[in-house]
Design a binder for these strands. Structure first.
Lengths: 135, 135
DNA sequence: ACTTGACCTGGAGTGCACTCCAGCTCCTAC
DNA sequence: GTAGGAGCTGGAGTGCACTCCAGGTCAAGT
């Protein structure tokens, strides 16, 4: 099965322009072309694009994605290096999740505080620092 | 207690340049100045900066932070609108955490797969799609 | 034959959030 | 009284990741 660039875009969630951009900067190998010179994406191409979107979603910089892609292209001998990249990246993602969860607590606190103000409830002294001008 | 811009930077984790930049774009009110014309941050200023870093860490765009800041500046009558902004933002942060967690699973899967390759274990058929070129 | 629509290329432009710089003013310590 | 360091301003520059554009090609439908 092969796919047009529009189908690859729909499948990966990337825009057509982004697909061409990724190719230009060496993040994806140029896909096959049909008789008219148009890109013809394979199922493997789509799987790779989908994986790349996971890395991007988790904040991996394009430079590092490209390093990973180039190792992959060099074959099975680079597996340990690739694994290492993913392991480090995973640690970063975990840290990021923890950071977001900690910020969520602050948001919960602020929102609770606003709710108390709006319901005209007396505000406990230990929350008063978060009201009004200081919020 | 008042603080120099360097102390405000150290306390908030923002750079000195970023503090001045935030002031320029109207995200923070200009702090007091000392006799020599230098910025003199108060404890309230630092608390607000710290809260801003939470919003920034969770990906709130500066434009929206500024909207929030301006509502805050207009006083207690804008509390409902401010709460609304935080509630919507919190929902976005929760979505983002869920998205990262889903990506973490993909990373775990890939890493497990690499470990199997490296230990030369037989790769189960249901993982084979993630090996080598397709990884 | 001709219109339409998808796709092509190389290159320029965008938006965001800083970050850096030159040239200046102050205050403090020696 | 002078050297050094922190801070000041306005403005320019940076890095990232796209995103858009002009001008062209190609295949299919009418």
């Amino acid at each position: 099965m092969t796919y047009s660039i529009a189908q690859a875009a729909a499948s990966s969630g990337l825009s057509i322009d982004t697909l061409r951009y990724y190719e230009r900067i060496g993040l994806v190998e140029p896909p096959a072309r049909d008789s008219g010179g148009r890109r013809d994406y394979s199922d493997e191409d789509l799987a790779w694009l989908t994986f790349l979107t996971r890395l991007r979603t988790t904040g991996m910089p394009i430079r590092l994605m490209r390093d990973y892609a180039q190792l992959r292209h060099r074959g099975v001998g680079t597996a340990a290096r690739r694994r290492q990249i993913l392991v480090e990246h995973r640690a970063g993602v975990r840290d990021r999740i923890a950071e977001l969860q900690s910020c969520l607590e602050v948001l919960d606190y602020k929102i609770t505080n606003y709710e108390m103000i709006e319901h005209k409830l007396p505000v406990p002294a230990d929350l008063s620092g978060a009201i009004g001008e200081a919020s």
